[in-house]
């Protein structure tokens, strides 16, 4: 994959709003044909970064190129080649599904003969045939999202920016949606998708974790798991609350997250025999529990990298 051309690249990309640094010196290098995720909580700068890459916001510092075009100087030329699905539904709620798509096909000035077939094709592909005459404002969350994606891909862009596309969508629709994305990626489309769902981020080929405007880590989900400086110990206890309390006293355990009866304990790799430490700790507290070392999932990775950054800032 690394041998492919670079579709999106950025160096030192920064955006300030007054004194707030919404995006802070982000570097990106995204190969063509990848699904690249932006993972981060609300306000971490995902939308702002995407807007800068689309040429809608001017960076305060740094540069970005998309398909080799500068996002500031060549933003108009760029627009033919990118599709952007905004975080908020941006199509016209008082127009019907067909009218919306027809409008988009005309705004992109598709040749006259191609407009209607293309719209019909999209309606079919995104299962909106039954809704053609329905006003967009009355569609369900999943239908709106499909319509928005259809609109964003109508002109067959090489690069697709999707800003939290699944936030108002039920799980079944999310699965179908991701299947669509994989199909598109296979056909060569580069997709940059932002999310705050860990399970979605895990599906991406590569991802960047954003925290308060800073890219704190990037790589494939697997690389990220291998490279964090923590071991993850999973503890299953009858009394997870008691287990958590006993573990939280020990400064060697960086963070403890409770998921039902399970606890996930992050222990710095500098601490030798993390598993033994946890077991010892539990035994001493006379808590009956099973502990095992596991491969970090994205939640752990996210905890780890944001934790590292916070510590780094504190020093």
């Amino acid at each position: 994959m690394n041998s492919r051309a670079i579709a999106i690249s950025a160096t030192g990309l920064t955006r300030k709003f007054g004194s707030l640094i919404a995006v802070n010196e982000v570097d990106l290098e995204i190969p063509a044909g990848t699904i690249y995720g932006f993972l981060g909580p609300n306000g971490s700068g995902k939308s702002t970064t995407i807007r800068m890459l689309c040429g809608l916001l001017t960076p305060s510092a740094g540069t970005a190129t998309v398909m080799g075009m500068d996002t500031v100087k060549e933003s108009e030329a760029l627009k033919q080649h990118i599709g952007y699905m905004t975080q908020r539904f941006a199509l016209f709620e008082d127009l019907t599904v067909r009218e919306n798509l027809r409008f988009i096909s005309e705004v992109y000035a598709l040749p006259r003969a191609k407009r209607r077939p293309r719209v019909d094709q999209l309606l079919e592909e995104f299962s909106l045939v039954a809704q053609v005459k329905q006003r967009a404002g009355t569609l369900s969350g999943g239908q709106k999202q499909r319509l928005a994606l259809a609109a964003a891909t109508l002109h067959e862009p090489k690069i697709l920016f999707l800003d939290e596309p699944t936030s108002a969508v039920d799980p079944q629709n999310r699965r179908d949606f991701w299947e669509k994305l994989f199909e598109m990626a296979e056909r060569g489309t580069t997709i940059l998708v932002s999310t705050h769902y860990m399970d979605e981020a895990a599906r991406c080929h590569r991802l960047a974790i954003l925290d308060q405007g800073v890219k704190v880590a990037d790589g494939s989900p697997k690389e990220l798991g291998e490279n964090i400086g923590y071991n993850v110990i999973e503890v299953v206890a009858d009394n997870p609350n008691g287990a958590r309390l006993s573990l939280s006293d020990n400064p060697a355990f960086t963070s403890i997250t409770q998921l039902g009866v399970r606890l996930r304990v992050l222990v710095s790799k500098r601490v030798p025999d993390a598993l033994g430490q946890v077991k010892l700790n539990l035994r001493e507290a006379q808590i009956r529990a099973e502990a095992d070392q596991v491969f970090p999932d994205l939640e752990d990775i996210f905890m780890a990298v944001t934790e590292e950054r916070r510590k780094g800032l504190a020093i």
Partner: peptide
Amino acid sequence: ERGNMELLINTPI
């Protein structure tokens, strides 16, 4: 206000 503008300005219009 409705967010339509963000879509419009991202098109070649």
